[in-house]
Amino acid sequence: SIEEEIKKAEEAKEKGKTFIHGDFVATTEELLDELLKRLRKKL
Protein backbone atom coordinates (compact mmCIF):
# COMPACT_ATOMS: atom_id res chain seq x y z
CA SER A 1 0.00 0.00 0.00
CA ILE A 2 1.00 3.63 -0.37
CA GLU A 3 1.05 4.08 3.42
CA GLU A 4 3.53 1.21 3.77
CA GLU A 5 5.75 2.65 1.04
CA ILE A 6 5.76 6.04 2.80
CA LYS A 7 6.71 4.39 6.09
CA LYS A 8 9.54 2.45 4.41
CA ALA A 9 10.82 5.57 2.65
CA GLU A 10 10.78 7.54 5.91
CA GLU A 11 12.73 4.76 7.64
CA ALA A 12 15.29 4.71 4.82
CA LYS A 13 15.65 8.49 5.15
CA GLU A 14 16.24 8.24 8.91
CA LYS A 15 18.90 5.57 8.40
CA GLY A 16 20.51 7.32 5.43
CA LYS A 17 19.79 4.39 3.17
CA THR A 18 18.84 4.07 -0.47
CA PHE A 19 15.17 3.44 -1.14
CA ILE A 20 13.87 1.94 -4.37
CA HIS A 21 10.24 2.41 -5.38
CA GLY A 22 9.52 0.92 -8.79
CA ASP A 23 12.05 2.56 -11.12
CA PHE A 24 12.63 5.48 -8.73
CA VAL A 25 15.90 5.11 -6.85
CA ALA A 26 16.23 7.54 -3.95
CA THR A 27 19.86 7.76 -2.93
CA THR A 28 19.79 11.15 -1.21
CA GLU A 29 17.55 12.95 1.27
CA GLU A 30 16.39 15.28 -1.50
CA LEU A 31 15.30 12.35 -3.65
CA LEU A 32 13.59 10.68 -0.70
CA ASP A 33 11.72 13.93 0.01
CA GLU A 34 10.64 14.06 -3.64
CA LEU A 35 9.47 10.44 -3.52
CA LEU A 36 7.57 11.03 -0.26
CA LYS A 37 5.88 14.06 -1.82
CA ARG A 38 4.78 11.97 -4.83
CA LEU A 39 3.53 9.12 -2.65
CA ARG A 40 1.54 11.45 -0.38
CA LYS A 41 -0.17 12.98 -3.44
CA LYS A 42 -1.46 9.50 -4.29
CA LEU A 43 -3.14 9.03 -0.90
Rank of each mutant, 00 (worst) to 15 (best):
R40G: 05
T18S: 13
E29L: 12
E4Y: 04
A12M: 04
D23W: 11
E34I: 08
E14D: 08
E5R: 09
K8P: 01
K8H: 05
R38I: 15
I6A: 02
E30K: 11
R40L: 10
K42M: 14
L31W: 07
K15S: 11
L36M: 02
E11N: 06
A26D: 02
I6N: 01
R40M: 07
L32V: 03
G16I: 06
K42P: 01
K8D: 04
L35N: 02
A26C: 05
F19R: 14
L35V: 04
K13Y: 07
R40K: 09
E10V: 10
L35K: 00
K15E: 08
K17Q: 13
K17S: 09
D23I: 11
I2L: 13
F24L: 07
L36Y: 00
K15F: 09
V25Q: 07
K17C: 15
R40Q: 09
F24S: 02
E10S: 05
G16R: 03
T18D: 15
L31V: 05
E4P: 03
K8V: 03
I6P: 01
G22F: 07
R40E: 08
I20T: 10
E3N: 08
E11S: 07
A12N: 02
D33H: 03
D23Q: 06
E30P: 03
I2G: 05
E5Y: 12
L43D: 02
T28H: 02
T27V: 09
E34G: 01
L43E: 02
S1V: 09
R40C: 12
E4K: 07
V25W: 11
H21L: 09
E11A: 10
K41L: 09
H21V: 09
A12V: 00
D33P: 00
K13G: 03
I6S: 04
T27M: 08
K42G: 08
K13W: 09
L43V: 05
E14T: 12
I2S: 06
K17E: 15
E3T: 08
G16D: 11
S1E: 10
L39R: 00
I6E: 02
K13T: 01
L31Q: 15
E4R: 08
E3V: 11
R38Q: 14
K8T: 04
K13H: 04
A9F: 04
T18Y: 12
E3Q: 10
R40W: 05
L43A: 04
K15P: 04
E34N: 03
L32N: 00
H21N: 08
L32T: 01
L36A: 01
F24T: 05
I20K: 03
L39H: 00
L31Y: 04
K42I: 15
K42W: 13
T18H: 13
R40I: 12
L39N: 02
K37V: 10
L35F: 05
K41V: 11
E30D: 10
E14K: 14
R40P: 01
K7C: 11
E3W: 14
L32F: 14
F19H: 15
E4I: 08
E4D: 11
D23L: 05
L39W: 00
T27E: 13
L43T: 04
E34V: 01
K7D: 02
E10Y: 05
I20Y: 09
L31S: 06
I20C: 15
L39S: 01
E29W: 12
E3K: 10
E4L: 09
L32Y: 12
E10P: 02
E5S: 13
L31H: 10
T28S: 09
R40S: 05
A9W: 03
G22M: 10
E30S: 08
A12Q: 03
G16T: 03
K42C: 12
T27A: 12
K41M: 09
A9E: 02
